[in-house]
Structure formats: C-alpha cells, structure tokens
C-alpha cells in the first residue's frame, strides 16, 4: 500500500491537471486589491476570499484528480501490471486514495501559507475591526480539506463501478452539490413552510439526510472570518462524522473494486 501511495503522489505532482489547476492560485495576488474595495472590512473580506479560493481549488483537485486517478489506471490498463503484483485490491485502492488525500492536505498547507501572507498584508492596509483568530482560520482550512477528502472517496467509489470518467467526475460534482444542500433541506422540512410539503417528501428527505454526506458540518468559515469561538463538541462531532463516513465509503469502494473484473 505504501508503494502505491508513493507512486500515486509522485504521479499527481507530475500531472498536468494539477499543474493547470494550481495556476488558479495566482488569483491570491488579487485578493488584497479586491479586499480594499470593501473599505471597512478589508481583513474580513480577505479571509473570506482566501478561504473561498482555497476551497474552489481543492474542489477542482478533488473532482478531477479523485475522479480520474483510479479511472485512468483502469482505462490505460496500468491496473493489469499493478494487480499482477502481490498487493490486494483493497490495499491498491486505499494506497491510491491515500496518495490523492495526502496531496489535498499538502495543497491545503501550501495554499494556507499563501492565505496567511495575503491576510497579513490585507490587515496591514486597513486594521481589522475584530481580532484575527489564526487557529480558527487554520481549523476552517483543515475541515475544508477533510470535506474534499470525503469527496475524493466518493469519486473513487464511482470510479470502481464506472467504465468512463463521466460518472466519477459528474458523480463527485453531484455529491458535492447535494452534500452542500442536505442540511438546508433538512432544516427547511422542519420549518412551518416545510410542513406544507407532500408527506412522501417529508419522509424521504430526512432519510436522505442521514444517507447523503452533510458538507455543511465541515464549514467553519464564519468562525474564521469573524473570530467567533468554535464549539469544541461541534469540532469533535464533525471529526467523528468524517471518520465514520469515510470508513464506510472506502469499505464499500474496496469491496466493489475487489469484485471488479479487469478485462
């Protein structure tokens, strides 16, 4: 598994997709200028823009690297040579997943450093009205990365059952959109307006809420932007949710890939 992990990580660094996506990071240079347009909330806006830009880059990496990594191995028949080695299918999938996930984390760290420089510079232009809580910013960044690691797991799951890249890529995008909305839908169902919905929607929506991922649980951006104290139980709850959900998706992925015929 370690060998598959290291070879995957090396592959990502040499991948043109990654190199293309990282070009988007030059937008960081524009953040101080854009933030200064807000006049009074320069720092807050620079934090918002930095975290949003990082989130967007991580989304692209998760969708395109996560969605094509395993598929490419199958499509280009690399799996024939790798599965001829004494590695189990599960360790191969987990090794590849670990390689992509590690890359997502590394990218978060590097972009986080860029964000730190941008936020510091912006706060120098116009002093922040509220103190900058760096731990909140880094924690928000970490949980954003964890969210996208979960999305990579979904992209892998779709890759194991698909013969084209459409399902892994568009499936991951769909999961991202749905996962970003599940909490809002769940909350709406429980409002007075939601009670007017047909009975079957009121039954199905909560069931889907528990099955589909809830990416809003990973969103600590407001705490980061306004320096609001984080709820410690909330952080632990999200961590536990991430670990359990990830375990289930990867177990399912490994199980399907172990049964897949490599023709």
């Amino acid at each position: 598994m370690l060998q598959v992990f290291s070879v995957t990580l090396r592959g990502v660094f040499r991948d043109r997709v990654f190199q293309g996506i990282l070009i988007i990071a030059v937008v960081f240079l524009l953040i101080p200028s854009i933030s200064s347009l807000s006049m009074r909330q320069v720092t807050e806006l620079s934090i918002t823009l930095s975290l949003s830009l990082i989130s967007f880059i991580l989304l692209l990496l998760a969708v395109f690297l996560g969605g094509t990594s395993l598929w490419k191995d199958i499509e280009r028949r690399y799996t024939f040579s790798v599965m001829g080695l004494p590695v189990t299918r599960a360790s191969y999938v987990l090794g590849k997943f670990a390689g992509i996930s590690c890359f997502v984390l590394l990218t978060s760290v590097v972009l986080g450093m860029a964000a730190t420089a941008v936020i510091r510079y912006s706060s120098g232009i116009y002093p922040a009205m509220r103190p900058i809580v760096w731990s909140n910013i880094y924690l928000a960044l970490l949980f954003d990365a964890l969210k996208y690691i979960l999305l990579v797991a979904f992209a892998f799951l779709f890759s194991t059952i698909s013969t084209s890249f459409f399902l892994p890529v568009f499936g991951a995008i769909s999961v991202f959109l749905v996962g970003s909305a599940t909490q809002q839908v769940y909350d709406f169902i429980h409002t007075q307006a939601g009670q007017a919905l047909p009975w079957y929607i009121k039954k199905i929506a909560p069931a889907l809420y528990y099955v589909l991922p809830n990416f809003e649980a990973f969103d600590f951006k407001v705490n980061a932007i306004y320096g609001i104290a984080l709820s410690v139980p909330g952080v632990f709850y999200t961590t536990g949710y991430f670990l359990i959900y990830l375990f289930l998706v990867l177990a399912f992925t490994s199980s399907i890939f172990s049964r897949r015929e490599l023709q």
Binding site: V7, R10, G11, R14, D15, R76, R77, Y78, F80, S81, G84, L85, P86, V87, T88
Partner: peptide
C-alpha cells in the same frame, strides 16, 4: 494475492505508469 508473490507477470501490450 499470495499467489502472485512468486510470479513475474508480463501483460499483453503492457502499459506502465508513463510518468515514471
């Protein structure tokens, strides 16, 4: 996977990680 521990396998028209 233990059966492959003693095997050297060459697939037909082989393809390997071409970035290596």
């Amino acid at each position: 996977h233990l059966s492959r521990k003693h095997v050297g396998y060459l697939p037909e028209n082989p393809a390997f990680y071409d970035y290596l």
